Amino acid sequence: MARTGRPREFDKDKTLERALELFWSRGYGTTSIQDLVDALTVERGSLYGAFGDKRRFYLEAVRLYWDVYERRLTAALDTTPLLPGLRQMLTHPARLDEFISDVGTPHGCLVGNTTAELVPHDGDATDIVTRSYRRFTAIVTEALRRAQAAGEVTDSATPEAQAQLLLYLVQGLSLVSRAGLDKEAALAAVDAAIEGLRAR
């Protein structure tokens, strides 16, 4: 007998957001399609139909992660003075315990995790990661340039070099956080970096 009930509505955006949380907490390699089906309560066929295979699903989640992060970064740095907003973004890897969800606790930065798991062997992942890092340094460079002009940030180095250093700092914190992180020590390290940027 044919089924006459309405099919369950499939919300692609919400499904992708939930998948992002799962991938962020477990990683790409250890998250199976069955894990996604179980956690998202979506039929396997719906996932394949909407996103293709697991790899393409994961890359879509990484793109979403970066889009959200970039909007938050831009908003946080569009402030005067700059350094409090910059500190907020730099301490993000040390505060991941604040972002726990019912699918788990996030680990590190999803872009950084992708670097560790898939780069350089996956060309699409490499493109996403490279573009994300470039966007980070471009956004932070412009903010630091404004802060240097306002006399808030030291001009002992170019804003480009300062932004690159901060990329290394935040990604280093993200990587270390995957192995367990002394939160107070991490926050102290960020504060040391902020003080190093402050104009005297």
Rank of each mutant, 00 (worst) to 15 (best):
K183V: 07
R178Y: 08
L181G: 07
Y168I: 07
A185Y: 04
A185D: 00
H121V: 14
T130S: 15
I128T: 13
S174N: 12
D124N: 11
E152N: 00
T158N: 03
L181E: 00
A161T: 02
G180V: 06
G151F: 03
D182G: 09
L169R: 11
G123T: 11
R134K: 04
D182W: 14
P120S: 13
L166Y: 02
A179V: 06
V176S: 13
Y168M: 10
L165H: 15
Q164I: 10
P120Q: 04
D122R: 10
T126I: 14
T115P: 03
V170T: 08
A147F: 02
G172N: 06
L167T: 12
A150E: 10
A125M: 05
V111T: 04
A163V: 00
N113L: 15
A161V: 05
I128F: 14
L165W: 15
I128C: 06
T130Y: 05
A143M: 01
A157Y: 00
F136D: 14
L173I: 07
Q148S: 04
Q171C: 08
R131N: 15
L144N: 00
A150I: 09
F136R: 15
G172Q: 06
G123Y: 15
V176K: 14
Y133S: 10
L169D: 15
P120V: 13
D182V: 08
H121M: 13
A149F: 01
V119D: 11
R145K: 10
D182Q: 03
T126G: 12
V111S: 00
E117V: 02
D182K: 07
E184D: 14
A179E: 10
E142W: 00
V153H: 01
A161S: 06
R145D: 03
Y168D: 09
E142A: 14
D122P: 02
L173T: 01
G123D: 15
R146Y: 01
V140H: 08
